[in-house]
Amino acid sequence: MNLFGFTFNRKPKSSAQAKERLQILLAHERGSGPSADFLPLLQRDIVEAIKRYVQVSDDAVGIRMDSIGDVSSLEINIELPADQKEAAKADKTDKKAAAKG
């Protein structure tokens, strides 16, 4: 089997992967170098905005940026504590009432 190994059993070259990963990464870093810097600020603002309505801890917010092919996505994950959803609703109606009154 080894005789034919060189034609049928060749592993993909790792150097090609290195080059491809670098090309993708550097295209991203060169084009939008500072873009990643705003993520922590965005995360802080989002958490602040949510905190006005719901009690969430800083750890409950996950934010990440991803790009696959031509599409870049921003994913924001917020874990709301189950009992807080009710609390938030109640709180909102209270505030509305207070504003009216």
Binding site: K13, S14, S15, A16, A18, K19, L22, L26
Partner: peptide
């Protein structure tokens, strides 16, 4: 190692 595809070639690095 570069010839074996285990290391980027000079051309690869130059292209990047």
């Amino acid at each position: 190692r570069s010839g074996d595809g285990e290391m980027m070639s000079v051309e690869d690095v130059l292209e990047i």
